[in-house]
Amino acid sequence: MDIHAYPTKASTPVDLTEAERIADRYLSGDDDVERGITNLLTEFDCCFTVVAIFPPPPGTDPHARPAPPAIGGSVSVIDKSTGAVSYWPSYPTDLVAEQYADALRTGRLIIEPDWPEDNDIDWPEDE
């Protein structure tokens, strides 16, 4: 299966500071800061994985471990050599990084020329 990634205006090669900038610009919504959502970046040989961390519900012990990524959520990957962003299921980040490296090695990574427009996506119809 081919992996599609989308271009960013990144300084390459991407280091942690640049990966944080990409995550803030391309992977965070306008109201994420207000809602207390942060990005957890993990560095691997060829990429950074990005997982959104949601604040605990009110009344939760502030010292408790953060909840795991939501089922049905996603892990994003930022390519170190190009800064391109791809989206993955909510698998453990080390597994995502391993599969990403395999896609890179086997030529299955396709960096698209542009990000998709909303009207280019086949959204399921409401029933």
Score class of each variant (00 low, 15 high):
Met1Pro: 11
Met1Ile: 11
Thr12Pro: 05
Leu27Trp: 12
Asp24His: 11
Glu20Ile: 08
Ser86Val: 06
Asp30Ile: 05
Pro116Ile: 13
Glu112Gln: 15
Pro92Phe: 10
Gly83Pro: 03
Gly73Met: 10
Asp102His: 10
Thr42Met: 03
Tyr91His: 13
Arg105Trp: 08
Ile71Val: 12
Tyr87Leu: 00
Glu127Ile: 11
Gly29His: 12
Ala101Met: 05
Glu117Cys: 00
Thr8Ser: 02
Asp32Phe: 09
Phe44Pro: 05
Val77Lys: 02
Ala19Pro: 10
Asp126Glu: 12
Ala84Trp: 11
Glu34Lys: 15
Pro89Asn: 10
Glu112His: 14
Asp122Met: 13
Ala23Asn: 09
Thr8Met: 06
Thr8Asn: 03
Pro69Val: 03
His4Ile: 01
Val50Asn: 13
Arg105Asn: 07
Thr106Arg: 06
Gly83Phe: 05
Ile78Glu: 00
Ala84Thr: 03
Ala19His: 09
Ser76Lys: 10
Val51Gln: 03
Tyr26Ala: 01
Leu109Ser: 01
His63Thr: 07
Ile78Met: 01
Glu34Gln: 14
Val50Ile: 13
Pro124Ser: 01
Thr82Val: 04
Pro13Lys: 11
Ser81Ile: 03
Asp122Glu: 14
Asp114Ile: 07
Glu127Ala: 12
Ala67Asp: 15
Ser11Met: 08
Pro89Arg: 07
Thr42Trp: 03
Arg105Ile: 00
Tyr87Glu: 00
Ala103Arg: 08
Ser28Glu: 11
Tyr6Lys: 07
Ser81Lys: 14
Ala19Ile: 14
Pro68Asn: 03
Ile121Gln: 03
Glu117Met: 05
Arg35Lys: 13
Thr60Ala: 13
Pro66Gly: 00
Gln99Leu: 11
Gly29Asp: 07
Glu34Leu: 12
Ile37Trp: 06
Asp45Glu: 09
Val96Cys: 00
Val33Glu: 15
Gly29Pro: 07
Phe54Ser: 09
Ala5Ile: 02
Ala5Asp: 02
Gly83Glu: 02
Thr12Ser: 04
Ala67Ile: 11
Pro68Leu: 05
Val75Ala: 00
Pro58Cys: 04
Thr8Asp: 02
Asp31Ala: 09
Val14Glu: 00
Pro113Gln: 04
Arg35Pro: 00
Ile37Leu: 02
Pro66Glu: 02
Asn39Gly: 09
Glu112Ala: 14
Phe48Trp: 12
Val96Ile: 09
Asp24Met: 12
Asp114Leu: 10
Gly59Glu: 07
Leu95Arg: 10
Leu16Thr: 09
Pro55Glu: 02
Leu41Gln: 03
Lys80Arg: 15
Lys9Cys: 02
Val14Trp: 01
Glu18Asp: 04
Asp122Tyr: 13
Trp88Phe: 04
Arg65Asp: 10
Asp24Lys: 14
Ile22Pro: 05
Gly83Met: 07
Leu95Ile: 07
Val85Trp: 11
Pro69Lys: 03
Ser74Phe: 13
Thr93Leu: 02
Glu43Ile: 04
Arg108Gly: 03
Thr38Asp: 09
Val33Trp: 14
Glu34Arg: 14
Asp61Trp: 09
Pro7Arg: 13
Ser76Arg: 07
Glu125Asn: 11
His4Ser: 00
Pro124Met: 06
Gly107Ser: 01
Ser74Gln: 10
Cys46Val: 06
Glu112Asp: 14
Ala101Trp: 04
Gly72Trp: 08
Ala52Gly: 08
Pro62Gly: 01
Glu34Val: 08
Trp88Asn: 00
Ala67Cys: 14
Trp123Ile: 05
Gln99Trp: 13
Thr106Trp: 06
Asp31Met: 12
Tyr91Ile: 08
Glu98Leu: 00
Ala84Leu: 08
